[in-house]
Amino acid sequence: MPNVMLKKNADGKLVFYVPKKDLEEVAESVEFDSPEQWGGEVLLSDGSKYYFEPQAQPDFPVTLRAKRVDSGE
């Protein structure tokens, strides 16, 4: 369950940062991405997947706990 720091980049895309692993990736897709419901499975550009408890859209940048779904390898 890594702590993930999330922010939006200049193009409005979600940027994923895991400090412990120096992992900095852009999210390709977010399962739920509306103001009322946000989260679910997030697919990163390196192919790995993470899961966030669905919740009201947080105020980015923010640090959330994520579950690793699969490593993409």
Binding site: M5, K7, Y17, P19, P61, V62, T63
Partner: peptide, 12 residues
């Protein structure tokens, strides 16, 4: 970068 990221989150 650590402190910059912290300020980004806490102070936007």
């Amino acid at each position: 970068n650590y402190i910059a990221r912290h300020m980004e989150e806490k102070y936007k």
